[in-house]
Design a protein around this nucleic acid. Sequence first.
DNA 1: AGAATTAAGTCAATATGACTGACATAAATT
DNA 2: AATTTATGTCAGTCATATTGACTTAATTCT
Lengths: 177, 177
Amino acid sequence: MKQIEIKETEAVGETPLPYDLIELLFFAYRDFTRDPDDALAEFDFGRAHHRVLHFVDRNPGIMVTDLLSILRITKQSLGRVLKQLVDAGIIEQREGSHDRRQRLLYTTERGHTLAIDLTRLQQKRLERAQIDLPDGSEEIIRKFLLQMIDPEARQEIVKIIRSSFDLIDYSKPDQNK
Amino acid sequence: MKQIEIKETEAVGETPLPYDLIELLFFAYRDFTRDPDDALAEFDFGRAHHRVLHFVDRNPGIMVTDLLSILRITKQSLGRVLKQLVDAGIIEQREGSHDRRQRLLYTTERGHTLAIDLTRLQQKRLERAQIDLPDGSEEIIRKFLLQMIDPEARQEIVKIIRSSFDLIDYSKPDQNK
DNA sequence: AGAATTAAGTCAATATGACTGACATAAATT
DNA sequence: AATTTATGTCAGTCATATTGACTTAATTCT
């Protein structure tokens, strides 16, 4: 009944809307982020803390400025979260050896362990999601996700991820059918 | 250099962590939600409004309670957003014909048009993301995303999405390798 | 018929994560 | 010496969410 109702309101001849993928992305991403969210709630940390912890752990010695540009948040937003992580002994700041203005960010041993633990939670979910998928699926998923990203941003993100994208030609980010 | 630094801190012999997929999901989802976010900013609406609009448009006549359970937010959180959408003439509430306690939710004509417009933005991105993927990729992506969802929730979500999942056996949500 | 439950809404207080804009300091670069 | 850069801070605001308690109306159960 409802399905007919919907169909009727869609203009005839137009491409069907990809409601399934849209909603799957919504629900999948929600559950994906909930594993670490729940784990961090014990420390009174939230998703913002997780993102900072993740990218600092992945990029030891990252500058505050570079972290801001990855996360696309403002200095003020980062400030509080970062301070809490430093106070909790999860992240530490060291003066840059060449440029003494910099406060380079590193996870402490404890912070690194925590980051790995959270990543393992997400790993578990990702592995479970790939059960019974045919060979080559991971490469398809990777390419799909990369191409979901704004073309202008892809190259920079590939650098951040610095993973096995050798087969993807991201020098032509604007190609169309 | 940095890559070596990271490798050293990982215990030898453990499975490599799927940083690439984790980060791709983060960046892909961020850009995916930005299209409608940007479009709604003109109306002074945010992502919360989009979610409500989307699921009301997809489920005409949905009860407030059911919408709350899909979105997993509280009545109070929904309240303000819903009121704004009703005030703006985007969503309307009708008394249930069988149960007069219910305020069933519908998009207005204007609301429906807006919902479709936003969905077309996301469609564009999804289509672009599937360029140059081999045949059968969409099915793989769909299955991957479905299996990213908590096993206990999958069946309910398939009902919400009510799409082409005939080939997926979600009666055994807990199967492992 | 009366009790219990359900659907929806409201009040009050709070938390989190984000924003803008302005300004300050120190260090590096030009 | 002047400018730019890296970082941090102050003050105020906003959006989205939370919890818990309570109300009203309508339906369902016993």
